[in-house]
């Protein structure tokens, strides 16, 4: 009796069935809906602006350097404090140019002042207007509470340094912050991506 070939039609059907199932399982089905995002850029309603002591005289014959660039959206400050408390009053302002709407502002410390190794040393940012004052420790990462800036008003920005006598003068103390403003104070502001 002659033996049949070992690969018959039953095997072929089975393989086809497996292939069919596999093709269904990995099928990439794409559906496309049309949509439009249009951004109408506008002048920033909240900006950094000069304070009464912007670029004023610093102690030791130096100058308080305040650079406001990028359409008033970037602030860069260089000051020269010394031992004890050094207070820089009103060296910049946060200005709400919107005549109709108020905004909530907050300061986020993204890169804290690098003086944490010096016991007792501190850097504080003070935001104030005629009705309220907010003090933020620039020595730790974090975000200040929301501070309401009514329409067509501004808030003064001051900075206080404390460096105890007896320590070696740091060559530079750098702090990176973000000014955040929003129409709402309901949520914690998100981080940039």
């Amino acid at each position: 009796m002659q033996t049949r070939a070992s690969f018959g039609w039953k095997h072929a059907v089975a393989l086809l069935a497996i292939a069919a199932v596999a093709s269904v399982a990995f099928a990439s089905v794409f559906v496309f809906y049309g949509g439009t995002i249009t951004a109408y850029y506008q002048a920033p309603p909240v900006v950094w602006a000069s304070g009464t002591n912007t670029n004023g005289t610093d102690i030791g014959g130096k100058t308080i350097s305040v650079n406001i660039t990028g359409n008033s959206t970037t602030l860069s400050i260089a000051v020269h404090p010394t031992y004890g408390y050094t207070y820089y009053k009103d060296i910049a302002t946060i200005k709400n140019d919107d005549t109709a709407n108020g905004y909530y502002i907050a300061i986020k410390v993204t890169n804290p002042a690098n003086i944490t190794s010096i016991a007792g040393a501190s850097v504080k940012l003070i935001i104030s207007n005629t009705t309220s004052t907010e003090v933020l420790d620039l020595g730790t990462t974090g975000t200040s509470p929301w501070y309401y800036l009514p329409a067509s008003t501004s808030a003064n920005v001051s900075i206080q340094f404390y460096l105890p006598g007896g320590v070696k003068l740091p060559s530079a103390v750098v702090t990176e912050i973000q000014l955040i403003y929003s129409t709402s104070n309901a949520e914690t502001p998100p981080s940039t991506v």
Binding site: W48, I59, G60, K62, T74, L75, S76, I77, A78, V79, H80, P81, T82, A113, V123, L125, L138, I159, F161, L163, L169, P170, S171, A172, V173, V174, T175, E176, I177, Q178, L179
Partner: peptide, 8 residues
């Protein structure tokens, strides 16, 4: 923004 202090 950035704040740089150069203590003296």
């Amino acid at each position: 923004s950035k704040i740089v202090a150069k203590p003296q």
